[in-house]
Nucleic acid binder design. Structure first.
Length: 880
RNA sequence: GUGGGUAUAGCUCAGUUGGUCAGAGUGCUACGUUGACAUCGUAGAGGCCAGUGGUUCGAAUCCACUUACCCACACCA
């Protein structure tokens, strides 16, 4: 057999296996009622986006779960797809067109959409190809796009059904307007950021009086649209003013003073200027007090005609001018520094302008109710649990959802208006005539839907809804949703209420929320900081397996993680370690026929039994950690087991049977076991590191079948062999102890030494005699229950009831040895004191579990014995 | 303002329901080329588990408060 190269090179391996899996349709999930279904829908990345570390983590986690379930015999579906990302994509396409000198409005809706689809076709495959590089085992035959035919059908259907139920309505309300994207935004699409701003104080003259009232504002330009002054109804200072009229400066408009509960008498002057057309709170005050609505700022954030001399000015330019003019009229009082948060567009950061306009809304209260209940009653579980609080808090205070967007790239609202009688027609297909007046002069609603409207349907629209499909019956509801905490509101919450409304079942039972991947300094990775790490570059340097392993190691649910190169190196080294373990095994099984060897004929020794037992236990551990989404613990268990147990101990122990003269049966057993355990390790590791494990698997003479569709190891309780584990532990402790002394006494590592093991456990030690000799480099080993003449000088240590005596003539430094023994003695004394303290405590003895008390008693016994021996040795040392 | 998170070896982080839990990686020290691996091996040093108080027989783990940093949501005239 050809030897493997010394170092593992992922670049030579990874792509090969992805192609192999694809060619064999291994990712394709079948509707198979003999199997238990398992399904995950992938959070659809923006179709023209690029893979970032967040995606990498998200998809690694999903792939791990999917691969694991698949190997465990489920019909596992991981359904991939992309999101049309209405606003984000439109912004990019508009930018591109602008660079080409094309204006969006010039080419019109049709022309623009053509360009947008071109853009989608150009970049649409990029992120999915990047996901493939990650090794993601998604069923690409079921790949979906939120703007494809099926998803669009689902969107229309949902819109119409909600409309018919009275849950979608149209109305004039104040909405968040982005003057740059030229569209409305939902509340969650507005990001609030603290800004150092100014608070301007100004005077409004009271009509028929020489008095003034004082108001303060952060946006003086809005005063042009003021239609009232409001005060706290319980504020005694201004009781007499309510009902009076003030003259709005600059505009010379008479506006009333009203009392409204919104006003906080403690803040500012206790008087608020009310601009119903440009502030959400003022809008509500206006509703309550029946105030006029005067729009002074337009969709471009410029002043409207009604502002007279200010018309056409930019809002900020107008602000300066207003202040200037007020000063001139002696109505300006002062400016104060003021920190306040400013709403900005989540896509372009432009400051939001609240505007009143006619929009479409989803009535949230009836939808939120069951969505709250589903989480409260445990039908949907958040991991970690604390996010259910975040979710509930939002759901319980939810406002109606503005779903119309003044964009073109998206699902056009299925509504037509009759141009003759004004009838609103909501229809699945384009109507020919108005049902009321039979006019054929119909015009479709220009607006499209919020991009999250279609993603909210993702768990069932992708499975075929509104059609009654096998996929839908079999795979819905999905099992777990894996996502970052930033889209709980945008997406998770909306999927939940839509799923409940249209499928009568929550779309998933578990929501696993992972944290952010930050840079090495703990900062958020962002484009503007330029501190993002490109997963693809990482894959090219370290391999996708190493990246995947890095992303889950030490990661805990919901917590952020810093990403540093050293951790990638550690993962790469781990891959290399496994590679070399396989290399070693393969170098020694040339003459061995695995498949015609019967396990029952093997001659298992202590280490074999120990290894089998440990493998079995680790299998259980991996299952349990994955069951609970403890990916960090899972990777640590694998790492420790593979490196510290299989490689450091088991392989070292196999060597004696490979290299030293043995009977054939012993060698065959070693060959079989080395391969078998390696095979199991590859299986357990496969969900995390699919490529390297598949590569090695195909080099092993175990099976022709692909590793990814092989059977997951089964945990067998009766195969746990605690007795062998305990024996091995004793032997390993003795070996470590000998190595320790050798190191301290500076014995030449290559030198074979003599050792005496004095203990009652002779049987155990004898069963590990060869391990002791080989791994501690002992040539003359004596295992005995009694010892009459102690060799002098010698170095001693006591572990696990075994007195390890190394007669190191000419090498023992008496002072050093004394010091060592005394240190050991101190430790023992401390332990005895601790254990005895516990045992002398009645509370402990009476309340603690019996085995624990028993354990402490045992400990005291052991340590007392050890103490005695140590003291003996110290005395002897002193005599010499 | 409301809610939440984090504080554990020099650094980055684990520690599942309170009882061998004081851990890992990396870094550091000493030694090491016996045919898997120097992307390695062996051994070692390092922490009052943020502080205070409480519950308990027993607390890194539960409770309260304090301090420091972070996040979300709300308000901001």
């Amino acid at each position: 057999m050809e030897n493997l190269p010394k170092n593992y090179d992922p670049n030579k391996v990874e792509n090969k296996w992805y192609d192999y899996w694809m060619e064999n349709d291994f990712f394709k999930a079948k509707v198979d009622y003999d199997k238990e279904p398992f399904s995950i829908v992938m959070p659809p990345p923006n179709v023209t986006g690029q893979l970032h570390m967040g995606h990498a983590l998200d998809n690694t986690l999903q792939d791990i779960i999917t691969r694991w379930k698949r190997m465990k015999g489920h019909s596992a579906l991981w359904l991939p797809g992309t999101d049309h990302a209405s606003i984000a994509t439109e912004v990019k396409v508009v930018d591109k067109l602008r660079n080409e000198g094309i204006d969006k409005d010039e080419i019109g809706r049709e022309g623009f959409l053509e360009k947008a689809w071109e853009w989608k076709d150009e970049y649409g495959g990029r992120i999915t190809n990047q996901l493939k590089k990650m090794g993601s085992s998604c069923d690409w035959s079921r790949e979906r796009f939120t703007l494809d035919e099926g998803c669009s059908e689902a969107v229309t259907e949902v819109f119409i059904q909600l409309y018919e139920k009275g849950l979608i309505y149209q109305g004039d309300y104040i909405v968040n307007w982005c003057p740059s994207c030229h569209t409305t935004l939902s509340d969650v699409e507005v990001e609030h950021e603290e800004h150092e701003g100014k608070l301007y104080y100004m005077k409004y003259p009271i009509k028929d009086s020489d008095d003034f009232i004082t108001v303060a504002t952060t946006r003086p330009e809005t005063m042009l649209g003021d239609t009232a002054i409001a005060v706290d109804p319980s504020d005694d200072r201004y009781k007499d003013l309510v009902g009076k009229t003030v003259i709005l400066p600059l505009m010379d408009r008479e506006i009333p003073i009203v009392a409204d509960r919104f006003v906080d008498s403690e803040f500012g002057t206790g008087m608020v200027k009310v601009t119903p057309a440009h502030d959400p709170n003022d809008f509500e005050i206006g509703e309550r007090n029946d105030l006029d609505l005067i729009k002074v700022i337009d969709e471009d954030a410029k002043m409207t005609e009604v502002t007279g001399k200010y018309a056409g000015m930019d809002r900020y330019e107008c602000r300066e001018k207003v202040i200037e003019d007020l000063k001139e009229e002696g109505l300006f009082i002062k400016t104060e520094e003021h920190i306040h948060s400013v709403g900005q567009c989540y896509r372009c950061d432009t400051v939001i302008e609240p505007l009143v306009s006619k929009q479409w809304f989803v009535k949230m209260e009836p939808l939120a109710k069951p969505a709250i209940e589903a989480v409260k009653n445990g039908d949907i579980k958040f991991i970690p649990e604390r996010f259910s609080k975040v979710y509930l808090n939002w759901m319980e205070n939810i406002k109606d959802w503005c779903i119309s967007r003044q964009l073109w790239w998206g699902h056009r609202i299925p509504v037509w208006y009759c141009e003759d009688c004004g009838e609103v027609i909501v229809s699945r297909t384009e109507p020919d005539q108005c049902p009321e007046c039979k006019s054929s002069s119909l015009k479709q609603e220009e607006d499209v839907l919020d991009t999250w409207f279609s993603s909210a349907l993702w768990p069932f629209s992708t499975l075929g809804w509104p059609n009654d499909t096998d996929d839908l019956n079999y795979f819905y509801p999905t099992d777990v949703l894996v996502t970052g905490r930033d889209i709980i509101f945008f997406w998770v919450a909306r999927m939940i209420f839509m799923g409940l409304e249209f499928m009568d079942e929550p779309p998933f039972s578990d929501v696993y929320v992972h944290g952010l991947i930050r840079d090495a300094q703990g900062r958020k990775m962002s484009k503007s900081l330029g501190n993002g790490i490109d997963p693809i570059e990482v894959i090219e340097e370290f391999g996708a397996d190493a990246l995947r392993f890095t992303l889950i190691t030490g990661n805990t649910p919901g917590n952020d993680m810093r990403f540093r190169e050293e951790r990638l190196e550690a993962s790469r080294n781990f891959a290399n370690k496994i590679w070399n373990a396989a290399r070693f095994i393969l170098m020694n099984v040339d003459d061995f026929d695995y498949n015609s060897t019967n396990f029952k004929d093997l001659k298992l020794n202590l280490a074999d039994k120990w290894m089998l037992s440990r493998t079995n236990e680790v299998t259980k551990k991996i299952d349990k950690t994955l069951e609970n989404y403890n990916f960090g613990e899972m990777s640590k268990s694998l790492y420790d087991f593979i490196w510290n147990e299989y490689c450091d101990w088991y392989i070292e122990i196999l060597k004696e049977r490979f290299y030293q003269d043995q009977d054939l049966k012993a060698k065959e057993t070693a060959q079989y076991m080395g391969l078998k355990i390696l095979g199991d390790i590859l299986k357990l590791l496969h969900p995390v590191m699919p490529m390297i494990t598949e590569e090695i698997w195909h080099k092993l003479p175990i099976s022709e079948k692909s590793l990814m569709i092989s059977d997951w190891p089964e945990y067998e309780e009766n195969e746990v062999d605690k007795d062998s584990e305990s024996k091995m532990n004793t032997i390993m402790s003795v070996i470590k102890s000998v190595r320790n002394i050798r190191n301290e006494m500076k014995v030449d590592p290559g030198r074979k030494i003599e050792a005496i093991l004095l203990s009652d456990k002779t049987e155990i030690l004898e069963s590990g005699e060869s391990y002791l000799k080989n791994l501690a480099n002992i040539d003359n080993l004596r295992i005995t229950k009694t010892l009459k003449n102690r060799p002098q000088p010698s170095s001693t240590s006591i572990v696990e009831g075994v007195e390890v005596i190394l007669p190191l003539e000419g090498m023992v430094d008496i002072d050093k040895e004394l010091k060592r023994l005394n240190n050991e003695l101190e430790d023992v004394k401390y332990e005895i004191k601790r254990a005895k303290g516990k045992l002398s405590n009645d509370g402990f003895v009476n309340n603690a579990p019996e085995e624990l008390v028993e354990g402490e008693k045992q400990k005291v016994k052991e340590y007392e014995a050890k103490k005695e021996k140590l003291q003996e040795r110290i005395e002897q040392m002193k005599l010499n």
